[in-house]
């Protein structure tokens, strides 16, 4: 699954650790999501969407239209 998490984080000048703190997950979890090694659960996807004030589809893309 592709995502725009790294771009959105960079726009706010947040480190992975800082984003992890805001989402209540580890820095490694943020890194794994950004590099496509981990797909977040639905609750975490909602938390991410709320944090960036966007919809889940605006951040995550599963390759299907």
């Amino acid at each position: 699954m592709n995502n725009r998490l790294k771009v959105l984080r960079a726009e706010r000048n947040w480190s992975q650790a800082e984003l992890g703190l805001r989402l209540d997950v580890s820095r490694q979890a943020v890194n794994a999501i950004e590099t496509g090694k981990h797909d977040p659960s639905l609750p975490l996807a909602f938390r991410i969407a709320r944090l960036f004030n966007a919809s889940i589809e605006e951040i995550f893309n599963d390759g299907h239209e």
Binding site: D24, V25, S26, Q28, A29, A32, I33, H38, S41, L44
Partner: peptide
């Protein structure tokens, strides 16, 4: 489970 983040759990 409640103490770990989901990445660690998975």
């Amino acid at each position: 489970r409640g103490n770990r983040d989901e990445y660690v759990n998975q």
